[in-house]
Amino acid sequence: MKPMTEFTIPFVGLKVATHHFDYKIEQAFFEHFEYKDFNNVKVDVKVALTKKPTLLELHFKVSGLVNINCDVTNEPYNQKINNEFDLVVKFGDEYNDENIDILILPHGSYELNIQQYLYELIILAVPIKRIHPGVKDGTLDSDILKKLEELSPRLNEDKETHEENDPRWDKLKKLLTDK
């Protein structure tokens, strides 16, 4: 996958200090990754890069809305997301991203592309079970909800209909008491 240049930070010319970068993520970003679970995306990303003499520290903060489909009714709704992540970038002999919190870049590297970190941070901010707020509070009027209600087992049925005595069970119950 070709890296998106707007998410590449050239850190070699930066002073030893904290630098701030702001990004606006929209649906086209996820189309680049061929991720189709989101209907629409409006997410703000703030990145604080602290450059030190021997390493870089990055603090990512994402917040915004993603429009996704409900797992119960398949109705689209806006899900608020908030997430943060810290990354330490060190320099070594070869590229290594095996540790989730530490990235090792080869000596002589002059830029860092953060698009993969942003992608994962936004994806992981969305809840695993996606339920429309109208389902939780009962305000959503949906054909699927009505059908689910119709097909759900009834818990408050008359218990008398289930407690009719069956002579076969009576004989088995008698075996339990005969010892």
Rank of each mutant, 00 (worst) to 15 (best):
T8F: 01
D166A: 03
M4I: 12
A125G: 05
L112N: 02
N40Y: 12
E26D: 07
G92R: 12
E149S: 12
I68H: 04
L145S: 05
K24M: 08
I122F: 00
V16R: 06
T18L: 13
I144L: 01
V88I: 14
E75K: 00
G134V: 00
E57W: 09
L49A: 07
D97F: 04
Q116A: 15
Y95D: 14
V126C: 03
H20T: 13
K2I: 03
V43R: 02
P127E: 08
V62A: 15
A28G: 13
E160A: 09
N83R: 04
P106S: 12
V88N: 06
E164F: 14
E164C: 07
P106G: 13
K173Y: 08
E6P: 05
D101A: 11
V45G: 02
N67K: 13
P53W: 07
T139N: 00
E31D: 15
Q115H: 08
V41S: 12
L58Y: 02
K24I: 14
D158M: 08
E26N: 07
N165A: 14
Y23T: 08
K15V: 12
R168G: 05
I123A: 08
E149T: 07
V62I: 15
K129Y: 11
S142I: 02
L145C: 05
V16Y: 06
D97N: 10
H32E: 03
E34C: 12
V43I: 03
T8L: 01
K174Y: 06
G134R: 00
P133R: 09
L103E: 02
Y119Q: 05
E57N: 09
V41M: 13
P127F: 09
E31C: 05
K136N: 10
Q115C: 03
Y35C: 13
H59M: 08
V16A: 07
V43S: 03
N113H: 02
R130K: 11
M4R: 11
Y117T: 01
P127A: 07
G64L: 04
V88W: 02
S63I: 15
N165H: 15
D101Q: 15
R130C: 08
P153G: 06
K24G: 11
K24A: 14
S109H: 07
K24L: 14
L176T: 11
D44Q: 14
P76M: 10
P53Y: 06
K129M: 11
N113S: 03
Y110G: 08
R154C: 07
T139G: 00
H32A: 01
I123L: 10
F85H: 10
E120W: 00
S152T: 14
P167I: 06
K15I: 09
K159Q: 12
G138N: 03
A28C: 13
T177N: 15
E157A: 11
K2P: 05
V47E: 04
E84F: 11
E98G: 13
M1V: 08
N69L: 08
V72Y: 11
G64M: 03
N99A: 14
L103D: 02
D166Y: 04
V43D: 04
I123H: 06
F30R: 00
L140S: 00
F30I: 00
E157S: 09
D137S: 12
E94A: 12
M4L: 14
L140P: 01
N165V: 09
L121T: 03
E160V: 10
